[in-house]
């Protein structure tokens, strides 16, 4: 397997996974806004910071801390200056797929093209709340269709391992970013009493963004609270979008790849961090710093993978 091809497969599946998570995050945030009374509103800005696009956003909209919903949604969906905008991410995934098209099933190309055409045609309209939910639901469907095609129709060769690796790292990263956004205080309430009341709602919406709410209820059978939600999303061994689950998957994949010391080291650092994490303490001190550290470790793992498997 050529390094370039492996690299492209890895990023292709990362971008598809990223697009799906972004669509979920925007969808759930938009719906949460509808549930809130007039005395509280969502701070949209943390969504931008979560996705690591603060610099681009401030260049366009200044550094005022209360941008409007319309501004943020447009920025996250279609802004050409934002390399992390949903449309840009999907365009990029499609471009990459073009270069490795001969290694992938034809159906996959068709599915990605459907996703691409849907976004090119409808993304501008999704700024409007009435169209947004349908638009995002279809983005999520298209992404899941691509994942399903890969899971069912691709031989388990080394190229496939790189795709799985990409999607597992991306999911771990997006899970931590979505927690980050919530912790940064998505809901802004006028009084402390209101804030207390909305906190549960907030963690519910985080779980929903990660399609985790139902599984959380079924497996923990408890009310949603910060500590349990963190426990579930960070350390649950059975839920596929939890960070620990993703890391465990990565561990299995690395065993099937040509061994690389750098990658193993980076992986163990990330795994150790999550193992040692104590949700109760994270709630007490606020989880943002931890999530940042986790993102740094995942970035280091990504760098080690590039250095070891995709040199040049």
């Amino acid at each position: 397997m050529l390094s370039r091809v492996a690299n492209n497969l890895y990023w292709f599946s990362r971008y598809i996974r990223r697009a799906e998570n972004m669509a979920r995050l925007i969808d759930v945030s938009s719906q949460l806004q509808l549930d809130l009374p007039r005395t509280a509103h969502i701070a949209w800005r943390p969504l931008v910071d979560t996705l690591g696009a603060s610099a681009e956003f401030e260049r366009l909209h200044g550094s005022g801390d209360a941008p409007s919903e319309a501004e943020v949604i447009r920025f996250l969906l279609v802004e050409p200056e934002n390399p992390l905008a949903l449309r840009g991410v999907v365009r990029h995934a499609r471009e990459i797929l073009r270069t490795v098209r001969e290694t992938m099933p034809q159906d996959c190309w068709i599915a990605v093209n459907d996703l691409y055409l849907h976004i090119e045609t409808n993304a501008e309209r999704a700024g409007h709340r009435r169209h947004r939910q349908d638009f995002l639901a279809r983005v999520i469907d298209c992404c899941l269709r691509v994942s399903a095609l890969l899971a069912n129709n691709v031989s388990r060769d080394i190229g496939y391992q790189f795709m799985r690796l990409g999607s597992a790292i991306e999911q771990a990263d997006m899970t931590s970013r979505i927690i980050d956004a919530a912790a940064a205080g998505l809901i802004q309430a006028r009084s402390e009493d209101d804030a207390e009341a909305f906190r549960a709602m907030q963690w519910m919406s985080v779980l929903q963004s990660l399609a985790a709410y139902q599984m959380f209820r079924r497996h923990l059978r408890q009310r949603v609270g910060a500590e349990l939600a963190l426990q579930f999303l960070l350390k649950d061994r059975e839920f596929p979008r939890s960070v620990l689950f993703c890391l465990t998957r990565i561990q299995g994949m690395l065993q099937q790849m040509p061994p690389q010391r750098l990658v193993q080291q980076a992986f163990r650092r990330g795994l150790g961090l999550v193992f040692d994490a104590d949700p109760a303490r994270l709630v007490a001190i606020g989880p943002c710093e931890f999530m940042d550290r986790l993102q740094v470790e995942l970035a280091a793992l990504d760098a080690a993978i590039h250095q070891s498997y995709f040199p040049g």
Binding site: M1, L2, S3, R4, A6, F310
Partner: peptide, 16 residues
């Protein structure tokens, strides 16, 4: 970019 030539004048491709 997939190919490079080493000091031994041999042509290699970069694989995983």
């Amino acid at each position: 970019g997939d190919l490079f030539v080493g000091d031994d004048d041999i042509c290699y491709m970069r694989t995983v």
